[in-house]
Amino acid sequence: MSKLSKLRRREALWFYLFASPWIIGFVVFLLGPMIASVYFSLTDWDSFTPPKWVGLDNYRRLLTDDPVFWKALWNTFYYAAISVPLGLVLGLWLANLLNKQVRMRKLFRTLIYLPTLVPLVATAMIFKMVLAPSGPLNDLLGVVGIPGPSWLLDSMWVKPALILLSVWGAGGATVLLLAAMKGIPRELYEAAEVDGASSLRQFWSITVPQLTPIIFFNLIMGLIGAFQVFSQVYILTKGGPNNASQTMVPLLFNEAFSFYHLGYASALSWLLFAVIMVFTLIAFRSARRWVFYETEVR
């Protein structure tokens, strides 16, 4: 008995030794600053002079006295609520297409994944041109008789423009979904075919349920990514016009590094954390009803 526990202890020691680079990194560079930011969120701090304790004042001001915060929160919701489902549906559709026996499948796969490899700054610059008031996109819309808006300059269209840019990166989800599709046992389809199920029925009753764990993964990552959207906003619009495209993280960045309100920005980051947490929890709760794991018996 004692011998076993000695072995165990030794194993545990090795475990901590090997995990220590990660543990130290996590504690020093993530957990430490996180805890520190809780403290700073309760202070008025400009990063130069000592923080002044203000209690919950930053949170109160954010929630009751800052119209830009609510605007940014709404914009972030708007962006997440459309870009995440749209990205998933599009990813699923593209993966399904790529899963078919078509010519030059490999070429298409590469092409669809390629946009996610282009640096965001370059993509954003191209989008600026594509979305110009008389740019290619509006020319295209003009062909079918739709007068295109001046996307990035119009407070009503600037958010849809950002969503368009996010959909451009749907290739990332596609690759994951495609890999999962390849892993679905052929027998399921064969059996369904014997039973006379149409291909549409097969898609809904076999492909989608089998993919739910991957869809779920993409949903969670997509939600977190969408709530933290930064570079696109920062490069394309800087939050303008008049904060119409301002989202949480660029707002936070401005407060912290442009206005030197680090306490206020810390409070903002914790509110953002709470929002993301709530949505992730909702997603996990609902997951029990729609996500199926192969090993699971119901």
């Binding site: 504690v27 020093v28 560079f29 957990l31 430490g32 600053p33 805890i35 520190a36 403290y39 000592p50 923080p51």
Partner: peptide, 14 residues
């Protein structure tokens, strides 16, 4: 130092 006073071991290292 005020920070250290909070007993944040992590903060301490940095």
């Amino acid at each position: 130092r005020g920070f250290l006073g909070l007993g944040l071991s992590a903060g301490m290292i940095t």
